[in-house]
Every structure is written in structure tokens, then in C-alpha cells.
């Protein structure tokens, strides 16, 4: 008796949410649910974006200024999730990235590679479907930006 109404109700939900049902997720099973915290997706996306050549750094101006400050504090590290904000649901995730590209790297191509790498990494490691990766390029790192720091004083 009780089986029949429950099976009809699942049938109706599967038709109403056909989009989410069409891609069955490994995260929801009869043996229990699996949930992934925002911070996990943030770290994976941050590392994946940083790997791509042409990406100089992640984060906007303010975030990078705080990151530089944090690095100077003993025991402080630059956070892997800097410049990355995510929204994570039960089956899907969306990622927003702020990044700085190297001068000379074609930005459209960098963005395409970053998007591909982030989607690959997050989907393979978490099983979440990535719905979108929004990329904001905040700055271009010029080779001359390094000169003041890298070269020691010309006369000693």
C-alpha cells in the first residue's frame, strides 16, 4: 500500500526536474548523501587556475594586498582560495575567478584554458557539475613590474 504512492511521487519529481535527473549524480545514493564544502571547491579551482601558464596570480587588488601581508606573518601562507568565490549546491557548482594575466598572453585564450582546467579539476575531483566559470581579468602583469624587486642595487 505504502509503496505505490511513494513510487508515483518519485516519478512525478523525476519528470518535473528532468534536467537534474538526466545527469545522475554519484553524490546522492541510497547509502547516504555526500556533501562538499565551499572551501574544498575553492581550493581545487584556485589551484587549477594557477596551473595554467599565462596566469600570473589570482585575486583582485585588495585581496592580493592582503595576501602579500599575510605572507610576511610567520606561519601565514597565501591562501589557495584567494580570488576565487564559489557557490556549491548538492549537485552543481559555479565558480567566479579574479585573476591577473602575464603580459603577452592572449587573454581570451588564457580564459578558455583556465575555464577548461577548472571545470575538469572540479568535476573529476568532487563529482559536482560545474555550471559556469566566470573570469574577471583585473590586471596584466608587466615584465617591468618585477624589475624593482628582482635586480639588486647596481652599486654596492
Amino acid at each position: 500500500m505504502t509503496q505505490t504512492p511513494s513510487s508515483t511521487s518519485t516519478a512525478s519529481t523525476s519528470t518535473s526536474s528532468a534536467l537534474t535527473q538526466s545527469a545522475p549524480s554519484a553524490l546522492q545514493t541510497n547509502q547516504g548523501r555526500t556533501t562538499v564544502a565551499d572551501g574544498v571547491v575553492q581550493k581545487i579551482a584556485g589551484l587549477a587556475a594557477r596551473e595554467v601558464s599565462g596566469v600570473y596570480a589570482l585575486g583582485g587588488g585588495a585581496a592580493r594586498a592582503f595576501g602579500a601581508l599575510r605572507e610576511r606573518i610567520p606561519g601565514g601562507t597565501q591562501s589557495a582560495g584567494m580570488g576565487v568565490s564559489v557557490e556549491v549546491g548538492e549537485k552543481q557548482a559555479a565558480v567566479d575567478l579574479d585573476l591577473v594575466t602575464d603580459y603577452g598572453a592572449p587573454i581570451a585564450e588564457v580564459a578558455r584554458s583556465v575555464r577548461r582546467n577548472v571545470i575538469n579539476s572540479v568535476e573529476s575531483m568532487t563529482g559536482l557539475q560545474v555550471t559556469e566559470v566566470n573570469i574577471a581579468v583585473n590586471d596584466v602583469h608587466l615584465p617591468s613590474d618585477d624589475e624593482g624587486q628582482q635586480e639588486p642595487a647596481r652599486v654596492q
Binding site: G32, R33, A37, G39, V40
Partner: peptide, 15 residues
């Protein structure tokens, strides 16, 4: 009983 797993954080190699 069903087991719900929550992944709360990721341990990075350099951390």
C-alpha cells in the same frame, strides 16, 4: 543506516 559524508576541507600538499 545511510551514511552522509561531508567533505569539509581539502588538505593541500604544502599545507
Amino acid at each position: 543506516r545511510p551514511v552522509d559524508v561531508h567533505v569539509g576541507d581539502l588538505q593541500l600538499p604544502e599545507e
